[in-house]
Design a protein around this nucleic acid. Structure first.
Length: 293
DNA sequence: CACTTGACCTGTCCGC
DNA sequence: TGCGGACAGGTCAAGT
């Protein structure tokens, strides 16, 4: 579910809400959602103060005093939602107000702060996780060692993009974009949108795409990610930000989840196909099928 | 080695 | 209305 823009939206929200708060207690009901709790929780989490909330790729890093960080991956259906003190007891909340209803059926971890506010980790499909890890050693973890560059960094140039993609010359471009070791944070929605914008068929082999097209793909991908962040991300089903609000980017999406509708560029009907084992949305006219396949 | 498939889970939607 | 099957935004491990 959450890709870079969604995780970044959650990060920005939490970074306004959490720093300065002190953990009072932690509850959890699904061991896989929090594999090293409760053993390390009492020792390193309770009493710790939140310093800052950072992001790398699709992973959130909540820095705590005491040298530990809470590292969170939302995977497909994870939510990290903050509830201010007494929020749940207020009257007149609209029925779609998630925060007022917390905890919900899919709540697997609750972090209580000393001021009475709470952070809820909800995850319908239970693929997501949070772990308490020593901050100084995060860079030793396999994931952080292997993950590719942030596509929105200033120094993520066209040459860098092409160099990274060329690590997988023989794979199709969609797989390469989704590969987190090639570059960080791109998932199914933004891969489809960027390939449509650059008029590249997702099954095209990386080595068969010319430099001009890759240059377009680079700039379109970055523009799409930035617009998505500005829209608060994409809510297809479950995604909400730190305050329980949905993102609106899908109203701008050109092809994702728009099969059966006319291509906004040429009017041809958008179709859904399968590439790299994932549902993939294309305009069959704008994105010509590669000859070699 | 590089790519594909299955597994991890629950909920929803679609066809019979 | 009920039931089976396919499918869902992500990543691993295991298989080819």
């Amino acid at each position: 579910m959450p890709e870079l823009p969604e995780v970044e939206t959650v990060r920005a929200g939490l970074n306004k809400l959490l720093p300065g708060r002190i953990v009072a207690d932690v509850w959890h009901n699904w061991p896989k959602s929090f594999p090293n709790a409760p053993a390390d929780v009492a020792r390193f989490l309770v009493g710790a103060k939140v310093l800052a909330v950072n992001r790398r790729a699709k992973v959130l890093i909540i820095n705590l005093s005491g040298g530990y960080s809470l590292v969170v991956h939302l995977k497909m259906t994870g939510q990290l939602v903050f509830q201010a003190k007494n929020r749940r007891f207020g009257a007149g909340h609209p029925s779609d107000d998630l925060v007022a209803k917390l905890p919900v059926k899919s709540t697997h971890v609750i972090i209580d702060f000393t001021d009475g506010s709470k952070l809820f980790f909800n995850d319908q499909r239970k693929f997501g996780w949070m772990r308490l890890l020593p901050t100084d050693h995060l860079s030793d973890i396999d994931f952080f060692k292997k993950v590719g560059p942030e596509p929105l960094d200033d120094n993520f140039t066209v040459s860098k993009f092409i160099e990274r993609l060329m690590r997988r010359p023989g794979s199709n471009i969609k797989s390469a974009l989704l590969d987190q070791t090639v570059l960080a944070g791109v998932g199914n929605i933004y891969a489809d949108e960027a390939l449509f914008a650059a008029k590249i068929h997702p099954a095209t082999l990386v080595a068969d795409i010319n430099r001009r097209k890759l240059t377009t793909l680079h700039s379109e991908l970055r523009a799409i990610l930035r617009t998505a962040i500005a829209s608060g991300g994409s809510t297809d089903r479950n995604y909400v930000d730190a305050e329980g609000k949905k993102g609106s980017y899908l109203s701008f999406a050109q092809v994702f989840r728009r099969e059966g509708q006319p291509c906004p560029r040429c009017g041809t009907t958008i179709i859904k196909i399968r590439v790299a084992g994932r549902g993939t949305h294309i305009c069959p006219r704008c994105q010509k099928e590669p000859k070699t396949k």
